[in-house]
Design a protein around this nucleic acid. Structure first.
Length: 290
DNA sequence: CGATGCCCCTGAGAGC
DNA sequence: TGCTCTCAGGGGCATC
């Protein structure tokens, strides 16, 4: 499901329920996700406070007040729902649904976090490709999950010079290189397709054959599409929803993703085509992407 | 090391 | 209605 804009949206939605708050009660249901929950996760989280929430690649990170970080990945189908407890539904600028009976009792609700906001956060993931774990905060960068993660695309370190160097000599198609989290952190299938379309680069081009001026255009396109999508609350296709239950709306602005056989919005008479690259769909316009 | 293919899991939607 | 097939915003691991 979620790429950088969706993860960013979920993280922002969690903020009023988590940041500066304390876990009053935590319950885990089935722990056999991508990696098993740490032993006694529920018991050992209870009573601990969250100092700060942030995002790295497609991970949501909650720094706890005692030197550990709660690490959350939503996989393909994960979501976090926040419910307000008590009379006041409003937490900061967010208006969460009132907690109803059964919140957290669904078939695929794997963890229920109650905090002193007061709020209830429910982690749901029907495909179970997500993960929740704990890592020592000062060892995050060297952790197996993070040590090979590349540059944040919305940071100033991600520029044309960086990407030219990163793609140099790469024999893999440009589409695959952009999906490689060791190079750029947080891009997924949707935003790679959209950025390639904006930069007018065909997804099958070999990375090493893409010219520096095209790479510069690609960097601009990646930053722009991600910023627009974050602003729109991400894209809601199947599973993504915001923590308050509302949908993102960037899917209405897709130029190519999931638009096979539709006209290319560049308006030159091209038609969007779907191809498969390393088992995943790529959407592009054969007329304007060269 | 780099590139590729397969697999993890469940549900939705299409076609028959 | 119900079966079977294909596909899905991710990523790790085995293999060559």
């Amino acid at each position: 499901m979620p790429e950088l804009p969706e993860v960013e949206t979920v993280m922002n939605g969690l903020r009023p329920a988590l940041e500066g708050r304390r876990f009053t009660h935590v319950e885990t249901r089935r722990g056999d996700l991508r990696i098993p929950f740490p032993k006694d996760l529920a018991r050992c989280l209870t009573g601990r406070g969250v100092k700060r929430l942030w995002r790295r690649a497609k991970y949501i990170l909650a720094d706890l007040d005692d030197g550990e970080t709660l690490v959350i990945h939503l996989g393909m189908s994960g979501s976090m729902s926040v419910y307000a407890k008590g009379k006041d539904h409003r937490l900061g600028t967010f208006h969460y649904p009132r907690m109803t009976q059964g919140a957290g009792k669904g078939k695929h609700d794997h963890v229920v976090f109650d905090t002193d906001a007061p709020a209830r956060i429910v982690f749901t993931d029907h495909r179970r490709f997500g993960l929740i774990t704990l890592v020592k905060t000062d060892a995050l960068a060297e952790d197996k999950l993070f040590k090979r993660i590349g540059v944040e695309p919305l940071s100033s370190r991600f520029d044309a010079e960086f990407l030219v160097a990163a793609l140099k000599g790469k024999k893999t198609p440009i589409k695959s290189a952009l999906l490689d989290q060791r190079i750029i952190a947080g891009l997924g299938n949707i935003y790679v397709c959209e950025a390639l379309w904006r930069a007018r680069i065909a997804p099958r081009r070999l990375a090493r054959r893409v010219k520096p001026n095209e790479i510069a255009a690609l960097v601009t396109a990646i930053k722009a599409v991600l910023r627009e999508a974050v602003k729109a609350g991400g894209s809601s296709l199947r599973d993504h929803k915001r923590t308050d239950g509302e949908l993102g709306y960037f899917q209405h602005r897709f130029a190519v993703y999931d638009r096979a056989r539709k006209p290319c919005p560049h308006g030159d008479g091209g038609t969007i085509k779907r191809i498969v690259q390393s088992g995943r769909s790529s959407f592009y316009c054969p007329l304007c992407q060269k």
